[in-house]
Simulated assay, not measured.
Amino acid sequence: MQKDQLFTRRRMLLAGTAAAGAAGTAGLFAWGTGGEPVPPAAPAAGAPVRRLPMKPSAYRLQPLTGYGPPSTAPRRIPVRRVPLLRVSARGRTMVLTFDDGPDPRYTPGILDTLAEYDVRAMFFVCGAMVAEHPELLARMADEGHVVGNHTWSHPLLTRLSRRQIRSEMSRTCDVIEDAYGERPRWFRAPYGAWNRAAFQLGAELGMEPLAWTVDTLDWTTPGTHTIVNRVEQGAGPGVVILSHDAGGDRTQSVRALRRYLPQLLDSGYHISVPHRQHL
């Protein structure tokens, strides 16, 4: 998929705003003091109306240089010393996350289950896997899931130089943007091994570090029943669940999701994705 062929949701929103703005300001409305469009007064019958030159007014957009919301500089991402372990949310909200994909053997099954229950999740993907299966990220975008950066080749960051860490992260950001349509806003260190350079470089690339609250340890293939029990016992408001959709045989992870997801929903949990408050 070529980068110049992608229309991100943000670009589509701006394009739609531009079209609406063009129709709404083509001599049809002025702006009132309350910020609502006010139709122009109809001319009185009789002599032709004398057209006076428009004067600058606090109620008109002078000059009119474009449409859409005013552009503002993005806020600086804080450089954290520890990753976020849970999310702040009202009520019984939880986040499901899946690492190391996308993998065509297991990711589609997870996406199918999430779609069946109309649930959104987070996928922390590896750049090398995205390069081989970009169509799975396109599906994630279409179905409203959030994609995070999990480096290019899943290395132990604490053993890499700063330059190597930057390459692992930035290459993955680029390939995610090509396949998903947006650059990632979250990242997760492989093996949960964070260091100062990872936090700094992640912030420079516009990403927040997200870890997890409950580790299902599904990568050890402990059995579907054990994975389900770990999720149900660890469930709670703001909890972030860690599972995997790649990196080995993830059959148990796919089966476990089909069992614990409806049980969480029946228990009153709202499964959602985190939102960056400063964006």
Rank of each mutant, 00 (worst) to 15 (best):
M1K: 07
L6Q: 06
F7N: 09
F7K: 10
R10Y: 06
R10T: 12
A15R: 11
T17Y: 06
A18W: 08
G24T: 11
L28E: 08
F29W: 15
A30L: 14
A30E: 11
T33W: 10
G35M: 13
P37Q: 14
V38L: 15
A41V: 14
A42N: 10
A44V: 14
G46S: 14
P48H: 14
K55N: 07
S57K: 07
Y59F: 14
Y59A: 10
R60F: 05
Q62H: 12
P63R: 12
G66M: 06
S71E: 03
R75G: 09
I77L: 07
V82K: 10
A89D: 03
T93V: 09
F98V: 02
Y106M: 10
P108H: 09
G109R: 11
D112W: 02
D118L: 01
V119I: 11
C126F: 00
G127Y: 00
A128Y: 04
A131Q: 15
E132I: 05
E143Y: 05
G144E: 06
V146T: 15
V146Y: 01
V147G: 04
G148V: 02
W152E: 06
P155H: 12
R163Q: 13
R166S: 07
M169T: 04
S170N: 06
C173Y: 01
I176V: 14
A179T: 03
A179N: 04
G181K: 01
E182P: 03
F187I: 02
F187E: 00
A189L: 03
Q200A: 15
V214N: 04
L217Y: 11
L217H: 12
T221V: 12
T226K: 04
Q233T: 15
P237C: 10
I241R: 00
S243D: 13
S243G: 13
H244M: 13
G247K: 04
Q252F: 00
S253G: 11
S253N: 09
R255W: 03
R255Q: 13
R255F: 00
Y260F: 15
Y260L: 04
L261P: 01
L265F: 02
D266S: 12
G268A: 04
H270V: 06
P274Q: 10
P274R: 09
H278R: 15
